[in-house]
């Protein structure tokens, strides 16, 4: 049986998942994910025609509450674990490319 997944696909998924992988990781994940995918392929044997999917085992729907303000984290608490901050903001690398003036 051919491998379920090739290295280019592994790199594509890693990009979607925002994971930077080393070449060794790409190669071992290709092998391991292929064998896992081959295993889960057995679900294909099951006839699921007309079967509804189950997303939650205990169906609870439309849970409402009154819209009243409650206590929440203070800005200081929310920022306490930030790797970089400029209170009251989280600090991140530049997202939009600016044209140099």
């Amino acid at each position: 049986m051919p491998s379920k997944i090739d290295e280019a696909q592994v790199r594509h998924i890693a990009h979607l998942a925002r994971l930077k992988l080393t070449d060794e990781e790409v190669s071992s994940f290709r092998e391991q994910l292929s064998s896992i995918l081959e295993y889960v392929e057995k679900l294909g044997e099951v006839n699921t025609d007309g079967v509804e999917p189950t997303a939650h085992a205990i169906a609870v729907c439309n849970v409402f509450r009154d819209d009243v303000p409650g206590t929440s984290l203070t800005p200081d608490q929310a920022l306490a674990n930030a790797p970089a901050k400029d209170a009251p903001f989280f600090k991140v690398p530049k997202v939009l490319e600016q044209e140099t003036a």
């Binding site: 998924i13 979607l16 925002r18 994971l19 930077k20 391991q32 994910l33």
Partner: peptide
């Protein structure tokens, strides 16, 4: 990407990869 590469171990990465796929 680099944060997640440095922060996560291999089983966590493997599961994120499988789930993303």
């Amino acid at each position: 990407s680099a944060t997640r590469d440095e922060g996560f171990g291999s089983e966590v990465k493997r599961r994120i990869m499988l789930g993303t796929y």
